[in-house]
């Protein structure tokens, strides 16, 4: 995570210096930045799933009695896990299709290498929510996302 963020910061800063002082720039710089932000997004989403701190709108369960809401949360985590599995499957299928293609995202990095974070992330999030279904104590759901 730290590596991703600081490589983004470094290349973005380098671009500014090159553009403003040397009137040039890295041709691949912006494509690289875009790819890194995609990775930050999906890796960050994986981190957030550790304790189910994804942004959500639990307006109903918030007002349910504790014993009942524990059950509801297990069900919700189970469903989340199923949808993640489906998303991982279909996006994985697409990445496989992309491997046949020769387009590069930046420099010599093929586009599927960048895209592969999408199925990986969904798979990991799916597993995390499956675990949370069996052990919801690890989740924090106070509705405050700070």
């Amino acid at each position: 995570m730290t590596l991703l963020f600081f490589s983004l910061l470094f290349i973005a800063a380098l671009q500014i210096v090159l553009r403003n002082i040397f009137d040039s720039g890295l041709l691949w710089g912006d494509d690289f930045i875009q790819s890194v932000v995609l990775w930050i997004g999906f890796v960050g989403a994986m981190y957030a799933s550790r304790n189910a701190s994804h942004i959500n709108i639990d307006v109903i369960s918030r007002f349910l009695p504790a014993a009942f809401s524990a059950f509801v949360y297990r069900a919700v985590y189970g469903l989340t896990s199923i949808i993640c599995a489906a998303a991982a499957f279909f996006s994985g299928q697409f990445v496989q299709l992309e491997m046949e293609d020769s387009v590069n995202a930046f420099l010599n990095v093929p586009i599927w290498v960048v895209e592969i974070i999408i199925p990986i992330s969904f798979a990991v999030i799916g597993v995390r929510y499956l675990l949370l279904m069996f052990n919801p104590a690890n989740a924090h759901h106070d509705g405050v996302n700070s």
């Binding site: 960050g44 701190s53 942004i55």
Partner: peptide, 12 residues
């Protein structure tokens, strides 16, 4: 990490 988890939440 903390900040990027927040960013991840927004970006997804």
């Amino acid at each position: 990490s903390e900040a990027m988890v927040m960013v991840g939440g927004i970006l997804v």
